[in-house]
Simulated assay, not measured.
Amino acid sequence: MCKLTPGLYLVATPIGNAADITVRALDTLRRADAVACEDTRVTGKLMMIHGLTTPLVSYHEHNAARMRPLLIERMRGGEAVALVSDAGTPLVSDPGYKLVRACVEAGVPVTALPGPSAPLTALVLSGLPSDRFLFAGFLPNRSTARRAALGELRPVPATLIVFESPNRLAASLADMADLLGPREAAVARELTKLYEEVRRGPLPALAAHYADAGPPKGEVVVVIGPPPADAAPAEADVDAALAEALERLSVRDAAAEVAARTGHPRRAVYARALELARGSGP
């Protein structure tokens, strides 16, 4: 068996069916000196199914700082290391990018073996515009922080893609519907697996469905259509909300309410509330 050129190989693994792996990926996993993976139990099952015996090395967010120099040393010493995630393309919501950066800085060659990607799979199944999109990873757990993040994403003129926990899905969709309006969206779960499902509709309808149905099973990707071309500027929305809130609340309380409602940074909203209260608005 011919030895691989020393370096880091980013290998995409199946999201669902273990058979959905490329021949090139299997060949690389077989010929590598080591396979660095998030969870040795998960990758171990994949290796066993395909009869692969390459040693596994644990590499995840909790040990990454310690393992990176060790892996770099091995590769600089002439070894080939394959990096995989638990499912899909590595470096998407995992610490792999730090290892790539370390390799680049150390002069270690890096190559990628493309394959499954949950965000892209959800995007193409959603039926939403795919000519311009933004993958935003996981939204914050708490509603206040999540709404702030959505406020930052609101004006982005592109389709949005986010990961979400099944247990937080209904609350997250409710925040999306409140901040982003009735945009068309899709909730995709268990992609490429037996019970794959894609539910499409306006954000308010999807929020209502999952509030009634309860948390779905499996991993979830939410795809949200871009803002309408004639959407009003976000600043005008904030000013209108502040004008209404200032009629019944103090400046501080009005700013807090509008920041929570719109997702805009609280400090910026407070500064604008002071301007309006002093009569220096437009």
Rank of each mutant, 00 (worst) to 15 (best):
residue 33 D to Y: 02
residue 33 D to N: 10
residue 34 A to Y: 02
residue 34 A to W: 05
residue 34 A to N: 02
residue 36 A to G: 07
residue 38 E to V: 12
residue 39 D to I: 12
residue 39 D to R: 13
residue 39 D to E: 02
residue 39 D to A: 13
residue 40 T to R: 05
residue 41 R to K: 15
residue 43 T to L: 02
residue 44 G to Q: 07
residue 44 G to M: 07
residue 44 G to V: 11
residue 45 K to V: 11
residue 45 K to R: 15
residue 46 L to K: 09
residue 46 L to W: 07
residue 46 L to V: 13
residue 46 L to T: 10
residue 47 M to A: 14
residue 47 M to T: 11
residue 48 M to I: 10
residue 48 M to T: 15
residue 49 I to K: 12
residue 49 I to F: 13
residue 50 H to P: 05
residue 51 G to V: 13
residue 51 G to I: 12
residue 51 G to A: 11
residue 54 T to C: 09
residue 55 P to Y: 07
residue 55 P to T: 14
residue 57 V to C: 01
residue 57 V to K: 00
residue 59 Y to G: 04
residue 59 Y to H: 12
residue 60 H to C: 05
residue 61 E to F: 03
residue 62 H to I: 14
residue 62 H to Y: 11
residue 64 A to K: 14
residue 66 R to H: 11
residue 67 M to L: 09
residue 69 P to H: 01
residue 72 I to H: 00
residue 74 R to K: 14
residue 74 R to I: 07
residue 75 M to K: 06
residue 75 M to T: 14
residue 76 R to I: 08
residue 77 G to S: 09
residue 78 G to V: 13
residue 78 G to I: 11
residue 78 G to L: 08
residue 79 E to T: 08
residue 79 E to C: 04
residue 80 A to M: 03
residue 80 A to V: 07
residue 80 A to G: 04
residue 81 V to L: 00
residue 82 A to Q: 07
residue 83 L to K: 14
residue 86 D to M: 12
residue 87 A to F: 03
residue 87 A to S: 10
residue 89 T to M: 15
residue 90 P to D: 06
residue 90 P to W: 10
residue 91 L to R: 02
residue 91 L to C: 14
residue 92 V to F: 07
residue 92 V to L: 15
residue 92 V to C: 13
residue 93 S to Q: 10
residue 93 S to E: 04
residue 93 S to N: 15
residue 95 P to K: 04
residue 97 Y to L: 10
residue 98 K to H: 12
residue 99 L to H: 06
residue 99 L to M: 09
residue 99 L to N: 04
residue 101 R to P: 06
residue 102 A to P: 08
residue 103 C to H: 06
residue 103 C to A: 09
residue 104 V to K: 05
residue 105 E to K: 09
residue 105 E to F: 02
residue 106 A to I: 03
residue 107 G to H: 06
residue 107 G to E: 06
residue 108 V to L: 00
residue 109 P to F: 06
residue 110 V to Q: 09
residue 110 V to R: 03
residue 112 A to Q: 09
residue 113 L to D: 03
residue 113 L to N: 02
residue 113 L to G: 05
residue 114 P to G: 08
residue 114 P to E: 03
residue 114 P to L: 12
residue 116 P to D: 00
residue 117 S to P: 06
residue 119 P to Y: 06
residue 119 P to Q: 13
residue 121 T to L: 13
residue 122 A to H: 03
residue 123 L to M: 07
residue 123 L to R: 11
residue 124 V to N: 09
